[in-house]
Each structure stands twice: as C-alpha cells, then as structure tokens.
Nucleic acid binder design. Structure first.
Lengths: 192, 192
DNA sequence: GTAATTTATTAAACTACTTTAATTTTTTTC
DNA sequence: GAAAAAAATTAAAGTAGTTTAATAAATTAC
C-alpha cells in the first residue's frame, strides 16, 4: 500500500528506515467511491492527498451551474486545495472521484510535525510544488496562446493515458469549451 | 538597497545577522532599462530575480507574432522562469522591462549553496512558491469560468496599482483578448 | 437484461471576441 | 518642442465557440 508513495518520495529525497516508518505512521488511508466527494466548496481542506488508485478531479461550479476543471489527478499525483489547506479558510473547489479511488492523506498538523521531525520533507514538498507550478504556468500560457483545437490536440498528445480514462464531458470542462464544441472538433479532426 | 528583500524574507523566516549577511553576499544588483530584456526565448534562465524597483513582464510570442503575458512583476515580487532555472533547459519565455527596473539576482549555484548553508531558505522558497501556485490556480479557474468582461473587472479590483502602471495593450495580452476588444469593453463599462 | 440515466452527436441560430483598417490621442525621441 | 512612433478608439465584417434542441449511443442501476 505504501510502495507507490515511498517511490514517489525517493525520486526527490532519501529517507532512512526510521524516517520512512515515521512518515507512514502519519498517513491515513481513505477510499473515495466513484461520484463521492473528497472536498466540497465551503469546506476547509484538512489534508493533502496522494492517489494510489483511481482518478479525481478538482473543479469549480460557476454561477450558471457550469463545471470548470482546474486539474485531474491519477495514481502518483498529489491533490488538495493548497490555499484552504494552508490558510484554514473555506475552499472554492470541489474534488470528487471519476473512478473508485484510494488516497493516502496527511493532515496539516501532521505535515507540520513532519517538517519539524524530518526537515528533508521541506525540500520534498518544495520540489513537488515546483513541478506543479511549472505545469500550471504552461497551462496558463496554452490557454492564452492556443485555440481550443490546438489545446485538444496537445492534451491527447501530452496525456494519452488520461484521455482514455475520462469522458469528453470532463475533458471539455478542462479545456474550457462545451461538450458540443469538443464533439465538433473531434469530427473535424477525424476527417483529416 | 537590501531593505525590501530582507523585509520580504522576514515575513516568512527569521534570520540572524550572519545569515542575513551571507544571503546579501550572494545577491547581485542589476539594472534593466525600459524595453531591455532580462530573458529571451532560448536562453537558459540563470537567476531568480527580486524586483526592488520597476515593472517586468513574462510573456511568450506565438507563431503569429502575438504576445501573451503569463505574469507581471513589480516591487517585492520574484520573477524568473523556474523551469529553465531548475532544469538548465532553454526557456520558452521572454522577460522584459515595462519601466526602468532594478533587481537583486541569485544564481542557481548560489541558491544551492544557500540551501545548504542556511536550510531555512528551503522553507522560504517553498512559501514563496506556495503563494505563486495559489495565485496561478486562481487565474486558471478565472480564465475557465469568467468572460473577458468579468476578468477585466476582477483585474482592476484586485490589482488597482498595477492597472495604473501598465498600458491597455499589456493588460489585454494578460487577459487573453485583443486591445481592440478591451477598448470596447471599457467604453461599454463607462456608460453604466 | 431491461429501464433509466448519462453522454455524445448533429444541425441551426446566435454571440463573444477577432480582424482589418482608418482616425485620433498619447508617448517617445532627439 | 516638433517629428516620429506607439497606443487607443471606432466601425464594420468575419469567425471561433455557444446555445438550444432533437436524436442516437453508451453506461449505470436494479
């Protein structure tokens, strides 16, 4: 159960057995069934979550009831709402499961203890955050510079595994277009 | 000259005099005149840059020659291209000065030395990054959920100081619309 | 395994935003 | 401070993407 997360960590920092054990001792295992929520708007996000199985989406619902997906998460990814987690303020986001999902959770309190006891984790979470930041900056630029068609083509090139797992409805909510328009784009692209 | 940056750091971590002195010793002062570049596409980004005076923009130029601004930076902000800085790969971004600007620079090498000598800086840059990450996630969501008009109104509400300092041309390149359309929006909003 | 629900497709009318181009206003430069 | 360059405005025609609605296909639920 802890294999994937230990490998994830080993990519960035080296832990001895005692540090590994301590880390594992602060994790909680949670199952989120398909369509169940990990977080709802207005909640305080109490945990950061490492996905060991399944698929989650982080999204908002606008004033017209339309969903907008800011990120997907699959195995080996961390998800949560960092703002709410850190500030203890209510989140603006929903997180729910697109497939039956299992996560390993760490609370704010435990993370603070972990930073104190094993300061290497400061580095680890800085590195995780760096990667996430770079990916986000890229996405902002893509949203500014590219048409919906280009963004769709880039998505299926960059995340072919993910494209297989999510519906077009979810993908359109991530790309920032309607499902109808995505369907039109696909038709047009097939005919080439 | 080092006042602002020391205050910026003191918001997040506490340094003793020796640590302050060491930190200052690894910084380089650089002046970037209006319209001059701090970084060009294809360069390797060798420094992170703290602005003590002036205004910078980070942007790409697409295949049609159109500029897209991913961020502005003013006094008290860090700018650079983290991806290129960390990976030593060529950047996709341009950074240039919208006003005569002064920055304090730290190289990758010196930052690594700093992390080793004063590990508290791991925490500092993690916190800086957290704030930047949260701001970016917000922007992604705004770009998905809001119309250009709403994004414009939000911008002038959230960054009134910045709006005074940048031209509409720059703002439109940040909002993801044409200068012509921004002008139309402004006209429409004034008449309310 | 069938009914119910959700997702995807198609078409047609619509709208937010772009493009082009001409004019005015502001800023920069020497 | 005059000339040149850049930015902003306006209008009109064009297009990428939306909306609505009807139908088909796929998935879910009991």
């Amino acid at each position: 159960m802890f294999d994937l997360i230990l490998k994830n960590i080993a990519k960035h920092i080296q832990l001895d057995k005692a540090e590994e054990d301590f880390f594992i001792s602060v994790l909680q295992h949670k199952i989120i069934e398909r369509k169940a929520y990990l977080l709802k708007e207005g909640d305080i996000c109490n945990t950061e979550n490492f996905i060991i199985k399944g698929c989650l989406r982080t999204y908002t619902i606008d004033e017209n009831g339309v969903e907008h997906i800011v990120m997907f998460g699959i195995e080996d990814w961390w998800v949560g709402d960092l703002y709410s987690f850190l500030s203890r303020m209510p989140t603006a986001y929903y997180i729910d499961a697109l497939e039956d999902t299992e996560v390993l959770q760490i609370t704010k309190k435990n993370l603070d203890i972990l930073y104190e006891r094993v300061p290497k984790f400061e580095r680890f979470f800085r590195l995780i955050l760096q990667n996430a930041f770079i990916a986000q900056q890229n996405r902002i630029n893509q949203n500014l510079a590219f048409t919906a068609e280009q963004r769709y083509v880039n998505f299926i090139q960059n995340y072919p595994q993910l494209e297989q797992r999510i519906s077009q409805k979810q993908l359109s909510a991530y790309l920032g277009i309607t499902p109808v328009f995505l369907s039109m784009l696909r038709k047009k692209l097939v005919h080439r």
